[in-house]
Deep mutational scan, measured.
Amino acid sequence: SPEEIKAKALDLLNKKLHRANKFGQDQADIDSLQRQINRVEKFGVDLNSKLAEELGLV
């Protein structure tokens, strides 16, 4: 269901964000992850996106 997909995506992105902060990645990478999280919260996951591929939806 779209809600489950959204939850999985947010979980994955939050893990990536945590790792980025923990290991001191570029601020641009961290900002990009934050924008992705905001986009998923607002609009859900686009099944044509790279994120959908990472989640194994495509």
Rank of each mutant, 00 (worst) to 15 (best):
P2L: 12
E4D: 13
G44D: 02
K15T: 07
V58S: 12
K6W: 05
E4Q: 11
E3V: 07
E41R: 09
Q36W: 06
L10T: 02
L10D: 00
E53R: 11
E53G: 07
K16Y: 05
E41G: 05
Q36C: 15
L47A: 07
L13P: 00
K15I: 08
D26N: 13
R35Q: 12
Q27I: 09
Q36M: 13
A28M: 10
K16I: 07
K22R: 11
K16F: 04
N21P: 03
E41W: 02
I5H: 08
K42D: 06
A7F: 08
A9L: 07
E41V: 08
V58G: 10
A20Q: 04
K16P: 00
A9P: 00
F23A: 13
L17A: 02
K8W: 05
E4Y: 12
Q34N: 09
L17Y: 03
I5K: 03
E54V: 06
L12R: 05
N14V: 09
A7H: 10
A7K: 14
L33E: 00
I30E: 02
K6C: 05
D29S: 14
S49I: 02
K50Q: 13
G56L: 06
V40G: 01
K50F: 10
A7M: 11
L47H: 06
I37F: 00
E4R: 08
V40Y: 00
D31T: 08
I37R: 02
V40S: 01
S32W: 14
N38P: 00
E54K: 04
A52E: 02
S32R: 14
A9K: 00
A7D: 08
Q25D: 12
V40M: 02
L57K: 04
V45Y: 01
K8C: 13
S32Q: 12
D29I: 15
L13H: 00
V40L: 03
H18K: 13
Q36S: 07
P2F: 14
D11A: 08
L33V: 05
L55C: 01
E54T: 06
Q34L: 15
D26F: 06
K42T: 09
G24I: 04
L47N: 05
D26I: 08
K22T: 12
K15R: 10
L57D: 03
